[in-house]
Structures are given as C-alpha cells and as structure tokens.
Design a protein around this nucleic acid. Structure first.
Lengths: 336, 336
DNA sequence: CTGTTAGCGCTTTCAG
DNA sequence: CTGAAAGCGCTAACAG
C-alpha cells in the first residue's frame, strides 16, 4: 500500500541502504545521490515504517504518560496543559507520546512495565507524586527510565530525576507585587501538611519577613470557594489590602467575598486557569512549558532535578463582583 | 534483554509457532501444551514485542488524537475527560492511544497523514469540528478511518462517522426539572449562530412550548461570567424563577447575580465542570463516557452516527453566593 | 561513498 | 494439532 524503502531505491537507482543513509545520515551520502534519492522520496510520498525501524533499532522513542481522572477541574486543566507541552516539545525531539489510564499507583506501575516490556514506550513521566510514592521505587528498581513531575516529598525514595515548580518563589513574587498597593498582604491557603501548600505559604511568609512586616493575616481552608469566601471576608474585615491565594479556587472565593463587601483589593490566584482569565484577577502561572522542557531534558541521563520558577500573570483587576451596573458596561463587543 | 518468543518456546520444549498460537489462538492448542507454554510465559515474564507484531500484521491498533490548546479552561476540561474515556475504553479493546499536537487544521491533517503512513496510528478521532471542516474531506479522500466528535454543521462535507451530544435534550430535561419550582424559567445563552448554542436554546424553547408557556426570558451574551452576571441580574429583575444556562461559565455569572441580589433561584449549568461541583449548582453532564464508547464503536465500519443523550446532574443549591455567615457554617469538615 | 548480507521478533502460509 | 520456512521493512555491520 504505502511506498517502501525498496521502492525508493528502485526509483532512484540505488540500493536500499543508500536510501536509509540518505534519510538517517544524509551527510555521508554524495550530494548528487542524496538529491536523487530525496526526489524519489518526494515523488513517492515515502515515509519510513516506524515499526520496522523500531524493531530493528529496538528503541521506541516514545514517552508514556498516565492520564489521571480529575473530577476536580483545576488539577485536570494543569495536567492537560502539561501533557500538551510535553507532546509538543517531544515532537521537536522526534519522540511520540502514548497515553494510558490506571486506577491506582499499582495499576500504573503494571501498565508501565507492560508498555516498557512490549517496547511500546521506553520512557515515562510520573505526575502527582506524593509522600512515599510507590511508583518511584518500583520503576527505579526495574530500571525503567522516568522523570517525576513533583519533588520527592520525603527522603526515603530511590534517587531519580524530577522536576517541580518553585511554588515558594511564585507566592513570594506575588506578595512583593501586592506590597506596592499596601502593607497588609494576606494569605489564603490550605491547612498545613500538603507539601505544595506549605511551600506557597512559605513564599508569602518570606516576602513579608523580608519587608519587615508581620505575617499575621493568614487563613487556611480546604480548596473550596465557599470556605474561601468566608475566610476572605474575615481577612478583609481584618484590614487586608490584598490577598494572595494558594489556588485559583480559593481566589474565586475571595472574589466572591469582595463582591459581597463591595470591596476592591487585589487578589492573586495560583495556576492561572481559565477562572483567573475569565474573572480578570492576577494569577501565578506554573510555567508548564518550562517544566515540560526540563522533563524531556532529564528523561535520559543520570538522575538530576530542576526547579522551575513560575511567573506572575498580572491582570488589571477583578472585572466581576463589581456592581451589576458597572459590569453591564462591559456587555458590549469587547469580549476577547 | 526481554524474553522473546523463542525463549519461551525453548523453555516449553515446543516451536515458536506453538507459542504464538497459544497466545493468539489458544483454542487451537492442545490444553496440556497450552498450560506448559503459559507456565513458561509466566516464568520468563514474557510479553510480545508489539513492533514485531505490528510490522508483521501491518496493523497498529492505535488511535491518534490531537491535543488541543485550550487557554479557556472549560473546553479543555471536557476534551481531557473525553480523552480519558477514550483511552480507558480503548485499552479494553486492546487498542492504544497516541496523542499529538498541531497548530491548525492543516497541520493536523498533515500529522494524521504522517502518523498513518508511518503506520503509528491507524484510526483517528477529530474533535472540535466546525462549519465546512477541512479535515473531514481531506481524511475521507485519503481513506483514513476517523470519527468526528461533533456533528457536521453543514451538509457539504463528505459522508463520515460522527458522534455528538444531544444538547437540545439536555436543556429540555433541565427546563422540565426547573418547571417544578416555578413557571418563569429563563434561558441564558450565547448569541445565535453557534450550532451547539442554538441547539441548547432550542431545548429550552421546546420544553416551554410543550408546557404551554412563553419563552420570553431569554438573554444572549458571550461566554463570560461578567456579562452573564449582568444579564442574569436583568432576568431576576424580570421575575425569573430559575435560570438554565448554556454553559457553566454563564452559570457562574448567574450565581454571582444571585449573590448580589440575595436571591435564591435554581441555576443550571452545562458541562458539569468543577465549577458546578464547587459551587453546588446543577449542571448538564455531557456523558462523555457514552460518547467515547460510541466513537470507538464507529471507528471501524461504514459511516454512521450517534447522538448521545446528556444527563442532568442535580445538586441541591448554590452553596456559594449566600451571605458569608451561612457560608461560614459550611466551613467545617464537610468538604468532599 | 555505495552495495551486499544478515537479522530484529513476530505471524502467515503450508507440510507433516 | 504441531513444526518448518518465509518475510513484514528497516538498519548495523562489513566489503567493495
């Protein structure tokens, strides 16, 4: 059906091997021959059969990634963006991405083993790592190349490559930016104990300490807009001049509190999801493109790690939560 | 490195062919032999090299899907869920899913051609189809099997398989449910001209007509919470007893209007995203699992189509947007 | 620089 | 029911 190496060789009047060289190592074939071969390739619309190549070279050049189930929204959006970035950049490195699903960590390891052994994928990316992640030891022991997106939150796991976002740097930058509009920068985060959440709170504390200010306006709730709204209301009542949040979900709640209080102070979210764009508040972009690049870089080679610096995506101000009359003014054709 | 068919054959004291049969056509192998072979397989941890198999059988059993770039959030979440469903169900059919990215429709077609020709994937799923979709004619002409998620919005495109969600049925069900709490069911949707939006509005109109009621509380805005809030405020002022929305984004805006007006009427969104779960309003679930099943079913065979009925996911009431004191009552451990 | 030979691991003939 | 032979399309080695 599709043209093969032999067809091209026949058409160009050379051996199959020369065609192979022309494609894989063009610089070792005579320019004139090369041109003739390439012309034949174009004419026949030839593209190599990758199964044959992979069988021969026993390399899949394919990255396996588990698709997580995410009924929660934001988490899913982030992983989706990350997956997109990995896939896009992998293509530039002549690599493909195969996805799979698994119900739990053990099933994921089983899938990875299977894909690896059947040589469908030869490198893997682990997402949503947690304390004492079983997957890490299992894969390290099996000698399967992988990179974790997420730092090892405990020291017990086997040495491995990982990439993570420097949440501390993110909230620090956001806090510094907020200090321009007032000293009473509040933090709205999650209860202690979640690694990422603690990091984010730490960045706010650091920035306040560096500015010689007390880090006293601090509230912790679950990642839920209703709880966040209540907590934010208290922070406003306590005189907050801005609110740095550990997630866009919390920021959404804070915006709600602003709305009810007819207040207007800057709110900064985390993750820069569609909610932040839609409501127009600033948010910290995890910089998943950079994460993806780092992951691909570490996929082959000795265990190493990278901490990616997120970026504050500044937006003017909440457009929502303002009195309806003002909002109505935006009812025109200015939606972008 | 990994065990091969020959290893298993040697271990079991049979020919390679018998091992192949034991794996692919177990019923034609003598039970005793089969058991011996399987024991060897287990012992060696053998799994067939799929490149060799695919090379030999020239079938990839792999579905290609483009990952779209989605800065908008909701759209991304939906496609992500869909991708998850397809991947999960494909695994049950012994098929894999390969993802790729493309900047536009032409690039996508080029990618598909390439993947198909290099035999990395042999069937494709098209998402986000639109009027006069170039991809459809191109793939149909190239004879590459595919199914579109999204109905052909114009009659000009080549005959092909597609699956879509019956948005009309969704809003109709939602409207019927809302009629239980009051006759003045309003609709908050998008401007005319978007196929899906028109369908959703149509379902509301149908339900109102069937109930012998006027479909007069109807507003159209862009998919933006701020605009939605303003429009919803007007609908409330006009006496709406509930608001059916064309998206969760619009519903989010409506909840904001409720909050400002201290009103409490049912709001129904569309897509059942995390926002609906988080804020606790009802929403129409597109039923992407059923869509995925239909897509896989149509992937091979004559052109055909399926219309999947969405389901109303009922939730008690907006938990957010209520006065802060009430919200604060939910500040306990009841987050799920 | 080009051609020949060999074989990656599997499955499809076709004999036994 | 089992075994032997052939070849899917490609590239690593070597010989010319």
């Amino acid at each position: 059906m599709s043209a093969t190496l032999a067809d091209v060789a026949a058409k160009a009047g050379v051996s199959r091997q020369t065609v192979s060289n022309a494609i894989n190592t063009p610089r070792i074939v005579h320019p004139a021959t090369l041109q003739r071969v390439m012309a034949a390739v174009d004419e026949l619309g030839y593209a190599p059969n990758l199964h044959a190549r992979r069988l021969r070279t026993s390399s899949a050049r394919t990255i396996g990634i588990r698709l997580e189930r995410h009924d929660d929204g934001i988490h899913g959006v982030l992983l989706d963006r990350f997956l997109h970035a990995v896939t896009e950049q992998a293509a530039g490195l002549d690599r493909h991405v195969l996805v799979f699903t698994a119900d739990d960590a053990d099933a994921e390891v089983a899938q990875i083993r299977s894909l690896s052994q059947r040589s469908l994928a030869d490198a893997f990316v682990l997402t949503s790592t947690d304390h004492r992640d079983r997957r890490i030891d299992a894969l390290a022991e099996a000698g399967i190349p992988f990179v974790a997106f997420g730092r090892p939150w405990d020291d017990g796991s086997a040495p491995h490559s990982w990439v993570d976002v420097d949440g501390r740097a993110g909230t620090r930058e956001a806090t510094d930016a907020c200090l321009a509009t007032g000293e009473r920068v509040a933090f709205l985060g999650w209860p202690d104990g979640s690694g990422a959440g603690d990091e984010r709170r730490g960045g706010w504390r650091d920035a306040m300490a560096d500015a010689g200010l007390p880090a006293d306006l601090d509230r912790a709730v679950e990642d839920d807009p209703a709880q966040a709204q209540a907590a934010a209301a208290e922070l406003l009542a306590a005189g907050a001049t801005s609110i740095v949040c550990a997630s866009d979900t919390l920021a959404l709640g804070a915006i709600g509190a602003l709305s009810r209080a007819d207040a207007s102070v800057p709110v900064v979210g985390f993750d820069d999801t569609g909610v932040a764009a839609g409501l127009g508040f600033s948010s910290i972009d995890q910089n998943l493109g950079a994460v993806a690049a780092a992951v691909l870089e570490l996929l082959h080679g000795e265990p190493a790690h990278r901490l990616v610096t997120p970026r504050l995506h500044r937006r003017a101000n909440p457009r929502w939560g303002l009195p309806a009359q003002q909002s109505a003014a935006a009812d025109g054709k200015d939606a972008s």
